[in-house]
Write a protein that binds this DNA or RNA. Sequence first.
DNA 1: CTAGGACATGTCCCTAGGGACATATCTGAG
DNA 2: CTCAGATATGTCCCTAGGGACATGTCCTAG
Lengths: 183, 183
Amino acid sequence: MSLRHGLLGLLAEGPASGYDLARRFTEVLGSIWPAQHPKIYAELNKLAAEGLVEVESEGPRRRKAYRITDPGVVEVKRWLTDVDVDHTMRLQPLLRSLFFWMMDTDELQRHLEAEASYYRELADQYRDYAARKDRGEFGYSEQTQSMRVTIEAGIRLYSALADWAEWAQTVPPAKPTPPHANG
Amino acid sequence: MSLRHGLLGLLAEGPASGYDLARRFTEVLGSIWPAQHPKIYAELNKLAAEGLVEVESEGPRRRKAYRITDPGVVEVKRWLTDVDVDHTMRLQPLLRSLFFWMMDTDELQRHLEAEASYYRELADQYRDYAARKDRGEFGYSEQTQSMRVTIEAGIRLYSALADWAEWAQTVPPAKPTPPHANG
DNA sequence: CTAGGACATGTCCCTAGGGACATATCTGAG
DNA sequence: CTCAGATATGTCCCTAGGGACATGTCCTAG
């Protein structure tokens, strides 16, 4: 139920169309909160029906830009302060890591190298983003300040995963002889 | 579609009942791959129907222990090596962080402190687990070696998030006067 | 003037997951 | 003997999300 509040939050920065929002979701939020355009349009219609957003303008190509309403702002703030954070994390790579013992050493090494470079690349992307932000490319509004904080989380998270994948390559595959079974 | 392979992987370590598996999922995997018992039982029945697992024994209280079959083992290995890793990450706390600018400073500080201690606690839990593993409490099988690697990821991930939440508390709320607007 | 491509919004279906509810079985405390 | 509580397995419904498919609109290159 966070797509709803994600949209409201983005609209709190200023009016935007479903298309704009879909682009922002894939560009900025792609790796931490994926959302497909069909869901976005559907949710926008629901939000409009509930009066949390309203059509601000209609443009060419049936474009509809939405604006957040006062009740909409109230709702995002309520969500931010009164609703418990959902800490659910569902990371398939970590689930897989439980079963590394079933892979043979070569495969595992290849896998871990691929994972490491995947995470390293994402971390670098976020780092670039942060550098551009710090250079002032996106201005100095409070919104971009928050974005900077989100980006920092991306950097740290993906760096941690990259380091982990590299570290895992150095872990000895298994103990062939348990300590109590020698002799 | 990973619950399926999670169950197969756990069963590859040895026979277990749905109840056992549910416990393992909440205890070890709770924070990185949540799964409710109804889904687990349903999936086990499907897996049994497809011949990837079979009933190993029936115990008291209608207990059914399952054992992985050869095709089951083949299927986990296929998943581990041939199926692309799903890197989807959906972290509500990061989505929320995009909207920190809508919270007032006090609320935000309280929020970040709560987040930091939440993550710190989880990191500590994983660290304890790792220490127990390193002391040999869980033996030295290849399975526990893999578990150790998974735990390490938990430690690093949650430490990174805790550090981030602490760091975020030191970030100035916003720039009241943009650099080009002074004078 | 016409066709390809970007812009823009949607429908539809299927599966995964959350969570409330139901039920059977066994053990141990009183 | 009885009842609480742990063990153990399920049904059912609802929502969220993934992804294929459909459609309309405008611009621009040829």
